[in-house]
Design a protein around this nucleic acid. Sequence first.
DNA 1: TGCCAAATCACACAAAGATGCGATTGCGCG
DNA 2: CGCGCAATCGCATCTTTGTGTGATTTGGCA
Lengths: 217, 217
Amino acid sequence: MRSIRIAIFDDSADIRDGLKGILKFYPDMQVLGAFQNANDIAGFVSLEKPDVILMDITMPGMNGIEATAVVKSFSPQTQVIILSQHSDDEKVFTALRFGATGYLLKGEDAGSIVEAIRTVVAGGSPMNAFVARKAVDYFQKQPVQSSRTNETADFGLSAREMDVLKCLGKGMTYKEIAADLNISIDTVRSHIRHIYEKLQARSKSEAILIAMRKGLI
Amino acid sequence: MRSIRIAIFDDSADIRDGLKGILKFYPDMQVLGAFQNANDIAGFVSLEKPDVILMDITMPGMNGIEATAVVKSFSPQTQVIILSQHSDDEKVFTALRFGATGYLLKGEDAGSIVEAIRTVVAGGSPMNAFVARKAVDYFQKQPVQSSRTNETADFGLSAREMDVLKCLGKGMTYKEIAADLNISIDTVRSHIRHIYEKLQARSKSEAILIAMRKGLI
DNA sequence: TGCCAAATCACACAAAGATGCGATTGCGCG
DNA sequence: CGCGCAATCGCATCTTTGTGTGATTTGGCA
């Protein structure tokens, strides 16, 4: 069986060395190269056309997402597995849209990495479960509005305030929110006032950013 | 720690018994019941509100997808893991859209099932890699445009526009941005206008949300 | 060299949002 | 049974934002 030809792009030498060290134990995996940035990735992939690329998402210069797009344009058959620090990254979708096939989190054990490489070669998409959750949530756009109970803990926000906050998180205007929730625009104002107090925000933009950071939306 | 309360819906007695047999070995997993069809699922979930349901996708009477929708409407916090024979069906999307959180193939080993249950409880989405591939392919259906106006690539945004966008991404007002970048407020307006055109946004909130989704900030 | 695009600024007006100061209703809880 | 709080709504006022319609300068490049 032909060995799997792999390239690594990551700005951390530790990660690069770690990955190389792991893959060294597998005779059917051949590391073609490990690079600290993706600036010359076009030339490399068009020359080598690796089977799999392990791609860090944050690198100086060209980031992992742009790099993925470049890879796919020069060597469509190359499978890109993104390695990211966080799962709460909106970048998941962008990376997938730009052609990445797998999405792992740093800190997966060695076995997972190797398994992921075999999986992409076999035609699957190795996804960290928490990353996958982002994609799943994407499919479930419609809010399955639930508990009318006022014990929505999270930030002291009531259920209704959460409804409004979710609307803010979709970029809706006061008017749209009022229509959507079947209440008057003044009630929307009222809820938003309280949301601002509780989240210590001063504008819609701030409220959205805080809510996202705190995982409320 | 409270044990995880689980229900099983599958028309095959072998599968039901197999799953029960596996879960019996884990003291923190409690099987509330195992049923051969989902016809009475509404009453059951509204009464028991299980933490996790293992749901076969093909059952006589109500199928697993409809059943999932019912479950989520009566007990939104219940996590549904679909068990399917094949990964090559459309049903993946439908099931996810109707509220399923995990999607496994029959024939996963015992450890995977147990791990999947723990994963959904922890807030992740256990997905078989080949099922995940379907979802990934879905994201890649919408192809990407590569407009290269200025070298800042991403969305045709110029370097200065990116500066302004990053400020937006911090929740700053026009006035604050103007001060921060040492330009007049009208110049800020001007840049934001162009950002809105390029991102197809109509407000700060929308611009921020789009920019985050696309990985620009 | 002449055109273009980016960056800067200006003014005016309309729309949206933020805030201050209310009011009423209905529900749970001590 | 009264208290508090969530949810609803109203109005007034000011600030911020969005948009239409301009202008000037500068650097690149065909």
